[in-house]
């Protein structure tokens, strides 16, 4: 059993399990599945700075912070106890393309060439680690949600603004990957 769990999980196992988070939250506490809101609650708790957007009772939403703390713990458990140390088996075309663009380390979940403290002060590392993160935090809040809140929770509940938002997530991702990222990787 443990051997099976240690293999990478196929999409048809992982996807439905992720989908079940939607009814789990509704049944357990009448909560809407969403992760990017946690970033807002952290702002409201730590640095509200008299900004009206952060003046609300974040403690009422603290369940969301407990949830993301659980995600950190899950990441730890999966890596420590359920890892088979498999490199991510991506399509060989993708590997070839990324190698041409200058990625050399394919051993982990993320390329160590870019995502490491030693890269943080290089232009490339700064863009991937700091600017990228900023865009994720700014964009998700501006959009009113992320992949979980819009793509999964929003579409599951048949809300068309979430369909629009999800299409925009994908459009932005395609533009970045196809037209901009090759230049950023080779910086």
């Amino acid at each position: 059993m443990l051997d099976i769990l240690k293999q990478p999980w196929p999409w048809y196992v992982a996807g439905p399990l992720i989908g079940l988070v939607v009814p789990a939250f509704l049944l357990v506490g009448n909560k809407a599945f969403g992760i990017s809101s946690s970033l807002r609650h952290i702002c409201a708790a730590c640095l509200p700075a008299n900004i009206s957007f952060f003046k609300y009772d974040w403690k009422k939403e603290s369940w969301n912070l407990f949830f993301v703390a659980g995600i950190v713990l899950g990441g730890f458990i999966a890596t420590q106890y359920l890892s088979g140390n498999h490199p991510v088996k991506i399509n060989s075309y993708t590997t070839t393309l990324l190698k041409q663009q200058g990625i050399t380390d394919f051993s982990g979940l993320l390329p160590h060439d870019i995502f490491s403290f030693s890269q943080l002060l290089s232009l490339r590392g700064f863009i991937f680690i700091v600017i990228g993160g900023f865009m994720v935090g700014f964009g998700t809040r501006y959009a009113g949600g992320c992949t979980s809140g819009h793509a999964i929770m929003g579409i599951s509940t048949l809300q068309w603004p979430s369909v629009v938002a999800t299409c925009c997530f994908m459009a932005g991702g395609f533009v970045m990957t196809w037209f901009i990222l090759p230049y950023l990787i080779s910086l």
């Binding site: 964009g139 992949t147 925009c168 997530f169 932005g172």
Partner: peptide, 30 residues
């Protein structure tokens, strides 16, 4: 904002390779 923010998030998602959920899981992963 669903459109403008969505596009900005999409651009960032392709850079970091992570939406907010995975950021937390990656930290837990070490």
């Amino acid at each position: 904002g669903n459109v403008y923010g969505g596009l900005i998030f999409g651009l960032g998602w392709a850079i970091t390779g992570a939406c907010p959920g995975p950021l937390f899981a990656q930290i837990g992963s070490g």
